[in-house]
Every structure is written in structure tokens, then in C-alpha cells.
């Protein structure tokens, strides 16, 4: 498999009245064609900001992308998403990279029919005429499992249930056969049974259309079910990236270990208290010149307080950003 997206050293900052927020401090990862990459991490770790940066969807100002590159490869060649101007990036958005947002009720225009909202991107990217558009929209609505698509075409978002609205959102994202779909916590606002349906639908469309999906989520359960690889982020930096089984079986970064331990387990004996990671994430206004996780890390030693750890490989496709080797219970000597 060839990478379709290669992001390296992405740096994004917000220039606010109170100071500079160091939202992303060098994010690097790649995405293979057709795979599902899950991005996990707590609120403020930079999951959404990473994706919004790639498509220039952040309000600028206050946001500013200060470095890095994001190479997007497809049949027509390679482009650096970060170097595109407004007109160029607007051809990528919706056309080659689709976006599914969290809360479909607020993410859809309340005074426009859902049919029109899907048709908009078809007109923009595929240049379809009115009648063609209509037919394709009905087709898409059927494909995402909305019953009575012909009638529903003319309905407004508030006339749909939460799950159906999220299906409309998916139709918007997939309308122009994109290469990548970014799903920003698409199941967070839904109840559990509907969540499962949305996850399943996305996977089915992904297989059918050969789309690579970046799935941003808090839900480690969903991750285990759908992801091929997982990227764990902390304080605007990737701390670990690994194939999903490898990550769950051999987590290498203390933060990942903490996250997995914090999962409530149905098979655990007795009624133990939930485990949490002590402390809170660092202040992004004043990032330290050492490991961001050191304050909360039970393995932290002297070096962690003096240097920022680089990314190291601990296995095929498994990279972590840490000085400590948790398996051998001693500091790494190869970094």
C-alpha cells in the first residue's frame, strides 16, 4: 500500500489576547490508501485541530499554521495541502477529502433542504446539472440508508432523527467520491445503538468506495472495532502510533498505557474504582522544554525533565515518543 497522505512536523498556534496557544507542536503521521486511522487523545490534545489545519478550516486569525508539510498523493500527482491558496484548497475540500462533523444538527444548515446541501458539493466538484444532481443525491441518500429518499430529498434537517441526520452528513462527505474522509467524532452525540449503525455504515461505504478514513474519537471501544492503526495524541504531539492490535497488546508509551488502564472492564473481578491518569494536561500557553507528559508519568526520570523525546521505532509501524522502555523497565539506550 502506498501512503495517500504524509503529514510531517505540523505546527499550529493560536494567537489570542491572553497569549500564544501552542496547539500543535510537530505532528507527523501518514495515512495509507483505504485504511482506517483512528486518532485518540483527551480534549485539547489537538486531534481536531490537526485535521482542520490540513484543510485550512481553522479561523485565521487567531490560528496560524507555522510549519510542516502535508503531502497528498493521488492519480493527478502530489500536492502539499499546507501550501495551497484559498481557491486550490477549496477544490480539495469536499472533492478529494470529505468531512463528517460531530453534531449533525448544528453542522447542517437549518433553512436548506438536505437534498440541496448534498447537491451543493456535487455542483461544485463534479459540475453536474440540476437533474443529474437530483438523481445522484437520491442515490446517495439511498446508499446511506435513508428510507423514502425521493421524498426525504426535500426535507429539512430538523425533520430527521439524530441518526438519520448523521447519515445525511455522511452522504455530504462521500458525495464526490473522496479519497479521504475525516470523521470528527461522528458518533459522540448519538446513542449507543445508533452509534453502531453509523460505524457500520461508514465501514461499509469505505470498503465499497476504497476510501481512507481518519476517525477522531475518545472512544477506545470504537477504535478497537474499526481502526487499522491508531495515533495517540497528547498536548499537540503524537505520542504513539501503531497497528491497532499491537497498540492494545503492547502499548509502549506511558500515556497510552494509562488510557488503556482507564478503560472500565466488564470482566474484571470485584467492583474496583475506575483507574484514572493523575494530574491534568499541560498548559499549552507555556509548553515546557521537556516531555509534556513528565508531570503525570510514573516512569519519568531525569532525562524526561531536560529534553523533548524524539520519535523512536519499537517495531514494524510502531513508533513512540518516549525515553523509557516500559517492557524492559529501564531507559532506552538507543535514543
Amino acid at each position: 500500500m502506498a501512503p495517500i497522505l504524509e503529514v510531517s512536523d505540523l505546527v499550529t498556534r493560536f494567537y489570542t489576547f491572553d497569549g500564544v496557544v501552542h496547539a500543535l507542536n510537530g505532528v507527523s503521521f501518514d495515512l495509507q490508501a483505504g485504511e482506517t486511522l483512528a486518532i485518540v487523545g483527551e480534549s485539547g490534545s489537538g486531534k481536531s485541530v490537526t485535521m482542520m489545519s490540513l484543510l485550512h478550516l481553522l479561523p485565521m486569525p487567531p490560528a496560524r499554521i507555522e510549519g510542516g508539510s502535508a503531502l497528498f498523493h493521488d492519480d493527478s500527482g502530489t500536492i502539499d495541502l499546507l501550501k495551497l491558496n484559498r481557491a486550490e484548497i477549496s477544490r480539495v475540500r469536499g472533492g478529494r477529502i470529505g468531512f463528517i462533523f460531530q453534531d449533525a444538527l448544528s453542522a447542517l444548515n437549518p433553512v436548506m433542504t438536505v437534498g440541496r446541501q448534498i447537491a451543493e458539493s456535487l455542483e461544485r466538484h463534479l459540475g453536474l446539472g440540476h437533474e443529474q444532481c437530483r438523481r445522484r443525491v437520491v442515490e446517495l441518500l439511498e446508499k446511506v440508508g435513508i428510507p423514502g429518499a425521493k421524498q426525504r430529498y426535500r426535507n429539512y434537517p430538523h425533520q430527521f432523527s439524530g441518526g438519520m441526520r448523521q447519515r445525511v452528513m455522511i452522504a455530504v462527505a462521500m458525495a464526490c467520491n473522496p479519497k479521504i474522509v475525516i470523521a470528527d467524532e461522528p458518533t459522540t452525540a448519538l446513542d449507543v445503538t445508533v452509534q453502531a449503525q453509523i460505524v457500520e455504515l461508514t465501514q461499509q461505504l469505505q470498503r465499497e468506495l476504497g476510501i481512507a478514513v481518519i476517525w477522531i474519537t475518545h472512544d477506545l471501544g470504537v477504535v478497537a472495532g474499526i481502526a487499522d492503526r491508531v495515533l495517540v495524541m497528547y498536548a499537540g504531539r503524537p505520542v504513539e502510533i501503531a497497528p491497532v492490535d499491537d497498540l492494545y497488546d503492547h502499548p509502549g508509551h506511558p500515556y497510552t498505557i494509562g488510557l488503556l488502564e482507564a478503560l472500565p472492564r466488564m470482566d474484571a473481578a470485584g467492583s474496583k474504582r475506575l483507574i484514572s491518569i493523575e494530574g491534568s494536561p499541560p498548559d499549552l500557553m507555556a509548553p515546557p522544554a521537556h516531555c509534556q507528559f513528565a508531570w503525570r508519568c510514573r516512569y519519568a526520570f531525569e532525562r524526561c525533565w531536560n529534553e523533548v523525546p524524539p520519535q523512536v521505532s519499537v517495531g514494524p509501524q510502531h513508533h513512540i515518543t518516549c525515553f523509557y522502555d516500559v517492557n524492559r523497565e529501564r531507559p532506552r539506550d538507543n535514543v
Partner: peptide
């Protein structure tokens, strides 16, 4: 600043 405006941008309009 509504979400649906961000969606509109994400469609490439």
C-alpha cells in the same frame, strides 16, 4: 461561526 458554515467550507464552496 455556526457549525454549518464550517460544513459549507468543508464542501469546498
Amino acid at each position: 461561526s455556526e457549525d454549518f458554515v464550517r460544513t459549507a467550507y468543508s464542501k469546498g464552496l
